[in-house]
Amino acid sequence: MKWKLILPFALLFSLGLTMTAFAHGARIEYTISMAVEILATYDTGEPMAGGQVTVYAPDDPSIPWLTGVCDEEGRFAFTPDTSKPGTWDVQVRQSGHGDMVHIPIGEDMAVSGGTGHTTLQIVLMGACIAWGFVGTALFFSRKPALSLPKGGPDAHS
């Protein structure tokens, strides 16, 4: 027997048996998932500490996808399922007050956003509305002799 010929082949064969585990190629896949962090405050600036959070996914806006609680600073973070693109609604509620923010996830995404107005907007709007009420008061307190016949502007004599 030519052992000198057969032994190396036998050795290689036995190694080949164990090699099946190392014969696969490697693959790496990646997906980008991101955390959405919300900050809930009252309009005085105080955080909604302990507020209850409800997240609704775009494919079923009536059944909560996730519920949770804000921390002491009014923050809450979650990772939306990016296989469900669309508008994610996040509602925060505490003692009967609350708000809902609509977050677009998918093709058109902003890096940040929120609800509410700036202080200047609020002051301007408030001033316009207050002037509306004051103007109404002034209109109706005009002297009746000249412009308002008895019974109101629609009465015909």
Partner: peptide
């Protein structure tokens, strides 16, 4: 119509009143 001026002014007061916050710990 005689009472509309004061109704209008008090509506303005009601409208603005909700901006006046009074802190009563732990809420306001």
């Amino acid at each position: 119509q005689e009472s509309i001026p004061r109704a209008s002014l008090l509506t303005a007061a009601f409208f603005v009143a909700s901006w006046i916050h009074i802190p009563i710990p732990p809420t306001s």
